[in-house]
Nucleic acid binder design. Structure first.
Length: 137
DNA sequence: GAAAAGGAATTCC
DNA sequence: GGAATTCCTTTTC
Protein backbone atom coordinates (compact mmCIF):
# COMPACT_ATOMS: atom_id res chain seq x y z
CA UNK A 1 0.00 0.00 0.00
CA UNK A 2 2.99 2.19 -0.37
CA UNK A 3 4.34 1.74 -3.80
CA UNK A 4 7.66 3.26 -4.63
CA UNK A 5 7.56 6.45 -6.47
CA UNK A 6 7.81 6.37 -10.14
CA UNK A 7 10.70 7.65 -12.08
CA UNK A 8 13.21 6.68 -9.57
CA UNK A 9 13.31 3.24 -8.17
CA UNK A 10 14.82 3.27 -4.80
CA UNK A 11 16.18 -0.09 -3.80
CA UNK A 12 14.35 -1.23 -0.75
CA UNK A 13 17.42 -2.21 1.10
CA UNK A 14 20.95 -3.22 0.56
CA UNK A 15 22.15 -6.60 1.71
CA UNK A 16 23.54 -5.86 5.14
CA UNK A 17 27.07 -6.98 4.91
CA UNK A 18 27.47 -10.45 3.54
CA UNK A 19 30.23 -10.50 0.99
CA UNK A 20 27.99 -12.17 -1.48
CA UNK A 21 29.35 -12.88 -4.85
CA UNK A 22 26.51 -12.69 -7.28
CA UNK A 23 28.10 -14.62 -10.07
CA UNK A 24 25.23 -13.82 -12.32
CA UNK A 25 24.57 -10.22 -11.75
CA UNK A 26 22.00 -9.78 -14.41
CA UNK A 27 22.30 -6.35 -15.81
CA UNK A 28 19.10 -5.63 -17.60
CA UNK A 29 20.58 -4.60 -20.88
CA UNK A 30 17.12 -3.94 -22.07
CA UNK A 31 16.86 -0.96 -19.85
CA UNK A 32 17.96 2.18 -21.49
CA UNK A 33 18.90 3.98 -18.39
CA UNK A 34 20.25 2.72 -15.19
CA UNK A 35 23.26 2.65 -13.07
CA UNK A 36 25.38 -0.14 -11.98
CA UNK A 37 23.31 -1.24 -9.07
CA UNK A 38 20.80 -3.38 -10.77
CA UNK A 39 18.04 -5.80 -10.28
CA UNK A 40 14.39 -5.47 -9.87
CA UNK A 41 13.49 -3.41 -6.98
CA UNK A 42 10.62 -1.73 -5.39
CA UNK A 43 7.30 -3.15 -6.28
CA UNK A 44 7.43 -6.76 -7.11
CA UNK A 45 4.84 -7.93 -9.53
CA UNK A 46 2.30 -8.28 -6.85
CA UNK A 47 -0.76 -7.10 -8.66
CA UNK A 48 0.58 -6.98 -12.10
CA UNK A 49 -2.59 -6.86 -14.01
CA UNK A 50 -4.66 -3.95 -12.98
CA UNK A 51 -7.89 -5.78 -13.49
CA UNK A 52 -9.28 -5.83 -10.03
CA UNK A 53 -12.66 -6.85 -11.33
CA UNK A 54 -14.13 -3.81 -12.92
CA UNK A 55 -12.54 -1.44 -10.50
CA UNK A 56 -11.30 1.74 -12.10
CA UNK A 57 -7.60 1.63 -12.58
CA UNK A 58 -5.39 3.58 -10.28
CA UNK A 59 -2.80 5.91 -11.60
CA UNK A 60 0.06 4.01 -10.03
CA UNK A 61 -1.15 0.82 -11.68
CA UNK A 62 -1.26 2.53 -14.99
CA UNK A 63 2.23 3.86 -14.56
CA UNK A 64 3.45 0.41 -13.65
CA UNK A 65 1.95 -0.99 -16.77
CA UNK A 66 3.89 1.44 -18.86
CA UNK A 67 7.05 0.79 -16.93
CA UNK A 68 6.61 -2.91 -17.46
CA UNK A 69 6.91 -2.51 -21.20
CA UNK A 70 9.96 -0.38 -21.76
CA UNK A 71 10.01 -1.56 -25.32
CA UNK A 72 6.79 0.28 -25.97
CA UNK A 73 6.93 3.18 -23.58
CA UNK A 74 10.56 3.47 -22.62
CA UNK A 75 10.82 6.71 -24.47
CA UNK A 76 8.20 8.28 -22.27
CA UNK A 77 8.68 6.71 -18.91
CA UNK A 78 11.22 4.44 -17.40
CA UNK A 79 12.75 3.43 -14.14
CA UNK A 80 15.82 5.28 -13.11
CA UNK A 81 18.08 3.56 -10.67
CA UNK A 82 20.96 5.20 -9.05
CA UNK A 83 23.87 4.18 -6.98
CA UNK A 84 22.73 4.64 -3.45
CA UNK A 85 25.88 3.75 -1.61
CA UNK A 86 28.96 4.34 -3.67
CA UNK A 87 31.27 3.00 -1.01
CA UNK A 88 29.39 -0.26 -0.75
CA UNK A 89 29.21 -0.74 -4.48
CA UNK A 90 32.92 -0.15 -4.73
CA UNK A 91 33.51 -2.57 -1.91
CA UNK A 92 31.52 -5.27 -3.68
CA UNK A 93 33.40 -4.63 -6.87
CA UNK A 94 36.66 -4.93 -5.00
CA UNK A 95 35.56 -8.24 -3.60
CA UNK A 96 34.58 -9.52 -7.00
CA UNK A 97 37.88 -8.53 -8.51
CA UNK A 98 39.92 -9.34 -5.45
CA UNK A 99 41.02 -5.76 -5.20
CA UNK A 100 40.75 -4.84 -1.54
CA UNK A 101 41.82 -1.26 -2.16
CA UNK A 102 38.95 -0.55 -4.50
CA UNK A 103 36.97 2.55 -3.84
CA UNK A 104 34.50 4.69 -5.68
CA UNK A 105 37.14 7.05 -6.93
CA UNK A 106 38.76 4.24 -8.85
CA UNK A 107 35.56 2.49 -9.77
CA UNK A 108 34.16 5.67 -11.25
CA UNK A 109 37.38 6.23 -13.17
CA UNK A 110 36.92 2.83 -14.76
CA UNK A 111 33.35 3.67 -15.59
CA UNK A 112 34.52 6.86 -17.23
CA UNK A 113 36.75 4.79 -19.46
CA UNK A 114 33.53 3.46 -20.92
CA UNK A 115 32.52 6.85 -22.16
CA UNK A 116 34.68 6.84 -25.21
CA UNK A 117 33.80 3.23 -25.85
CA UNK A 118 30.14 4.01 -25.91
CA UNK A 119 29.18 1.49 -23.28
CA UNK A 120 28.10 3.81 -20.54
CA UNK A 121 27.51 7.49 -20.52
CA UNK A 122 26.21 10.15 -18.27
CA UNK A 123 22.54 10.96 -18.64
CA UNK A 124 21.61 14.08 -20.56
CA UNK A 125 20.83 15.82 -17.36
CA UNK A 126 23.83 14.78 -15.41
CA UNK A 127 23.13 13.63 -11.92
CA UNK A 128 25.45 12.46 -9.27
CA UNK A 129 25.82 8.71 -9.03
CA UNK A 130 23.65 8.14 -12.06
CA UNK A 131 24.99 6.56 -15.19
CA UNK A 132 23.35 5.30 -18.27
CA UNK A 133 23.99 2.24 -20.34
CA UNK A 134 24.18 3.14 -23.96
CA UNK A 135 21.86 1.25 -26.20
CA UNK A 136 23.70 -1.23 -28.35
CA UNK A 137 23.31 -0.64 -32.04
C1' DG B 1 32.94 17.47 0.93
C1' DA B 2 31.84 14.25 -2.40
C1' DA B 3 31.42 13.40 -7.23
C1' DA B 4 32.79 14.28 -12.03
C1' DA B 5 36.23 14.50 -15.41
C1' DG B 6 40.40 13.11 -17.59
C1' DG B 7 45.74 12.67 -18.09
C1' DA B 8 49.18 9.59 -17.22
C1' DA B 9 51.65 5.65 -15.40
C1' DT B 10 51.17 1.03 -13.84
C1' DT B 11 49.30 -3.60 -13.23
C1' DC B 12 46.85 -7.71 -14.48
C1' DC B 13 45.17 -11.44 -17.47
C1' DG C 1 47.47 -5.42 -26.09
C1' DG C 2 43.36 -4.26 -23.81
C1' DA C 3 40.98 -3.63 -19.65
C1' DA C 4 41.23 -2.14 -15.39
C1' DT C 5 43.68 -0.01 -11.56
C1' DT C 6 46.19 3.60 -9.28
C1' DC C 7 47.23 8.28 -8.55
C1' DC C 8 46.54 12.79 -9.35
C1' DT C 9 44.67 17.78 -10.46
C1' DT C 10 40.96 20.59 -11.52
C1' DT C 11 36.20 21.58 -11.73
C1' DT C 12 31.40 21.13 -10.53
C1' DC C 13 27.60 20.23 -7.58
Amino acid sequence: REPGRVGEAVPQEIPPDPPLLPSTLSLPSSHPSLPVAGGDTGWADSEVDSSCAGQPIHLWQFLKELLLKPHNYGRFIRWLNKIEDSAQVARLWGIRKNRPAMNYDKLSRSIRQYYKKGIIRKPDISQRLVYQFVHPV
